[in-house]
Each structure stands twice: as structure tokens, then as C-alpha cells.
């Protein structure tokens, strides 16, 4: 057994060969699906190949975008990384877990859930998915803090207040139930909660979709600042090129469960290669 010390990898998150099939997970389900076939449904087994052969690395301080229409598999990929569901195949490594030598898919469910405390956080499109609406803004942030052992009420409140201040939620709303908050404000609370334990990896799933344009712009500005300041490695899943353009440096384009193109974000916008990417960009340009 080799015990030689290996330098930790440059990436914070690495995904290789990730696949997620709903239904028959056997290899027969894969042929006949994907962009060339124009479908994610296996002609042989009827299984849904929601994502297949997805791979990428994200460095600390870097934001990677995944763009595609609904049903392209981008959110599936995010949920598989977050541990909300288990991939059918592939590996997911985090630098914070065994210096990147451990495929987190091999961890037991409890350890896998534990990653959400220190190693990665997710912000969902629907704040109700990431927050308890019947708990105060401060209480929602107290959740991840107490989960890692914070037991001092005053310090929990200080930390919650500083996070809420950072996401520009007025402190006089700290003790109000999140249910009474506007959509944009809820999203800010969700972001504050996700950042509570300074995770090295942050997953953002359509973080501004569903918000009014002006509200969305404010949340995007905030996210952009946070990504720059915190040095977090981020994966931004969105159908909206404006979001991807503002937040990310590199991007993957997904269609029918596959990555059809990847590149620097400005290159994808200015010189898309794949027909589907060109179609997306043309649509975004109106």
C-alpha cells in the first residue's frame, strides 16, 4: 500500500464520467439516446438517460457554468454532485475529502450527507427547497451552524447577522419568519445559509430564475461579488446566458443529457461551435 504523500490537486471539485439513468441502468439503455438521437429515452429499455458521460474540474475561486434547456440534464448533474440523488455511474471527488483521492459516491449515506456541512453547499431555484419557511432568517442560518457544533446563542446570532448583512438582508428582518419575505429576500437568505460554514464548493441551481428582472439583477450582482471574494469553487446551473455570462469563466453546454460543447464563457458566447450552442446563443441574443 502506498502511503507516499501526494500534493493535493489544483481542483476543488472533479467529476468524471457521471451518468444518471432513471429506469434500467444497464448499458443497453444508453445507445440511441443523446443529441444525435434527439432524445433521452432509450429505444431499447425505455429508461431515461438524464445525464451521461459528464466530466469537468472546478478550481478554487473559479465558477463553471452548465447551460442547457430544461430536460438537458444540467440540474440532474447538480443534484448528483449535491448528493440529493445518486448517480448511476461516474466519480465525484472533492479536494476537501482525502485530498481528492476519495470518490464521494463510495461514502455511506450518512458521511455523504455530512459533506453538506463542511464541503459543499447548494442554492436551489426554489428557496423552499433550501430553507424552512416557518423558521426565522436567523434560525435558518443557525441550522448549518448548530449542525457543526455551534452551541453559543450569542455567537450564532453574531454569525447569522454578519451573513445576513453580507447578503444585504436588513437586520431588522433577522427574527422574522422567512415565509414573510419576498422572493429575492428569501433567495438572499438561502445564499447566506449556504455560505454559513464557508464551504469550498458552492452549487447554484438557477439561483435567479423566477425572480423579477430587477430583483434577479440584484441577486446576481451579490453572487458575483461573493464568488470573487470567497474563493469558493462554484458550479452555476442555468438556462440563461446572461446569468452564465455574469457569473462564470468557463461553461459546459448540455443537450439531451450530454455535454455537447465546453469552453471559456466569452468564447461560447462569441464563437459557439456546436449547432445547439449556436441556437442557444442566437435565442439569447433575441
Amino acid at each position: 500500500m502506498s502511503t507516499a504523500t501526494v500534493a493535493p490537486p489544483a481542483w476543488a471539485l472533479k467529476v468524471e464520467g457521471l451518468g444518471r439513468i432513471y429506469g434500467d441502468p444497464s448499458p443497453e439503455s444508453v445507445p440511441g439516446t443523446g443529441p444525435e438521437s434527439g432524445t433521452v429515452i432509450s429505444p431499447a429499455t425505455g429508461a431515461v438517460v438524464a445525464a451521461w458521460d459528464v466530466g469537468f474540474e472546478v478550481a478554487p475561486g473559479e465558477a463553471l457554468g452548465i447551460i442547457g434547456e430544461s430536460g438537458s440534464g444540467k440540474s440532474t448533474v447538480m443534484r448528483c454532485i449535491a448528493g440529493d440523488e445518486d448517480a448511476t455511474t461516474g466519480t465525484i471527488n472533492l479536494r476537501g475529502v482525502g485530498d481528492g483521492t476519495v470518490d464521494v459516491r463510495t461514502l455511506d449515506p450518512s458521511a455523504r450527507r455530512g459533506l453538506r456541512l463542511h464541503q459543499l453547499s447548494a442554492v436551489y431555484q426554489d428557496p423552499a427547497a433550501g430553507l424552512n419557511l416557518d423558521v426565522t432568517a436567523g434560525g435558518n442560518i443557525a441550522d448549518p451552524l448548530t449542525a457543526v457544533g455551534w452551541r453559543h446563542y450569542g455567537r450564532i446570532r453574531e454569525r447569522a447577522a454578519s451573513l445576513l448583512r453580507r447578503v444585504e438582508v436588513p437586520l431588522d428582518r433577522m427574527d422574522d419568519l422567512v415565509r414573510t419575505f419576498s422572493g429575492g429576500m428569501r433567495q438572499r437568505v438561502q445564499i447566506a445559509k449556504a455560505l454559513a460554514n464557508d464551504p469550498p464548493v458552492l452549487l447554484l441551481d438557477e439561483p435567479t430564475t423566477g425572480l423579477d428582472a430587477s430583483v434577479a439583477a440584484g441577486v446576481l450582482d451579490l453572487l458575483r461579488e461573493l464568488l470573487e471574494e470567497t474563493g469558493v469553487a462554484a458550479v452555476v446551473v442555468s438556462h440563461d446566458f446572461a446569468v452564465i455570462d455574469l457569473l462564470t469563466r468557463r461553461v459546459l453546454v448540455m443537450q439531451h443529457g450530454r455535454v455537447v460543447e465546453s469552453g471559456l464563457t466569452d468564447q461560447l458566447l462569441e464563437d459557439p461551435q456546436h449547432p445547439y450552442s449556436q441556437q442557444l446563443v442566437a435565442a439569447a441574443r433575441g
Binding site: 424552512n132 423558521v135 426565522t136 436567523g138 434560525g139 435558518n140 443557525a142 441550522d143 448549518p144 448548530t146 449542525a147 452551541r151 446563542y153 450564532i156
Partner: peptide, 10 residues
């Protein structure tokens, strides 16, 4: 038990 602690916090 984080949710229990959140209950106490609230």
C-alpha cells in the same frame, strides 16, 4: 440534531 437546536434557537 441541528433542527432540534434550531427549535431551541427559535
Amino acid at each position: 440534531y441541528a433542527k432540534m437546536w434550531v427549535r431551541l434557537y427559535e
